[in-house]
């Protein structure tokens, strides 16, 4: 940070963008944004703009990678060169490779991977504009794209982050809060089953603070989950209306 940190929380307890500590950024979700993909989703969470596309299940190439008893889930998280202030090299960075793995492992428990052995599902996550907690937003979008592709799933996966800024536990961190704040806890969650599929922590929190952050993130996940379901339904809403 160039100059000494600006205040992240004002006297009224509001954050830089006017949110309360337990408030999410505004979210807009669209399912089926791409017509070429088998399934797709576009999500805007604050200034985050992320596109997810799913292809498959399909024959796996190279064939020796196929597994005899389950399908292979492949995931690519990629940030567009224009997604951040300073141009990002389009080549996959160490961070992107790691996030690809993180996203894959967060959505895999939701998929009935053993149903279609010897096949592969490809998930492409493209970050068009990044503003903190992109891994969470990506997971939310990826699971929607999977559901849109007709892949059998136990539940939709939702993800949301919580963190600590200026000794306060807050929900859904944005970029500056992540960089200046002291801790970040991304959580991915399957609300109907009550299962956490991703839990990370970057920074230092006490035991109590950590618990508070996780619970806050789960509350956030549940809120996003309703939006997620709504978006998935919206694509098929015409179907619902004409029912007898």
């Amino acid at each position: 940070m160039s100059q000494k940190t600006e205040k992240l929380i004002d006297k009224k307890g509001l954050r830089l963008d006017g949110r309360k500590s337990d408030e999410l950024r505004p979210i807009k979700i669209e399912v089926g944004a791409l017509s070429n993909a088998d399934g797709s989703a576009y999500i805007e969470q604050g200034k985050n703009k992320i596109l997810a596309a799913v292809y498959g299940p399909r024959e796996l190439h190279p064939k020796h990678m196929a597994l005899p008893d389950r399908m292979v889930l492949r995931c690519r998280y990629h940030m567009a060169p224009f997604s951040v202030q300073e141009r990002k090299s389009p080549a996959p960075s160490r961070r992107e490779i790691e996030l690809s793995k993180v996203i894959r492992e967060a959505v895999e428990p939701a998929i009935f991977v053993e149903y279609y052995p010897r096949t592969a599902i490809d998930v492409f996550v493209e970050v068009l504009q990044a503003d903190g907690s992109t891994r969470c937003t990506s997971i939310t979008a990826a699971s929607l794209a999977l559901a849109d592709a007709g892949i059998p799933m136990r539940d939709l996966v939702v993800a949301c982050s919580a963190g600590k800024i200026e000794d306060m536990i807050v929900l859904d961190l944005m970029d500056i809060e992540d960089k200046v704040g002291s801790a970040d806890v991304p959580v991915a969650f399957m609300p109907n089953l009550g299962v956490i599929t991703l839990l990370q922590m970057d920074g230092i929190l006490t035991h109590e603070e950590f618990e508070k952050a996780v619970n806050l993130a789960i509350e956030g996940c549940k809120k996003i989950y309703t939006l997620q379901k709504e978006a998935l339904r919206a694509k098929y809403v015409s179907v619902k209306e004409v029912e007898e």
Binding site: A110, A147, P152, M153, R154, D155, L156, M190, P191, N192, L193, K229, L232, R233, Y236, V237, V239, K240, E243, E244
Partner: peptide, 10 residues
Amino acid sequence: RRQLVTPGDL
């Protein structure tokens, strides 16, 4: 019956 459901719905 015939209501729209999404993955994970009980």
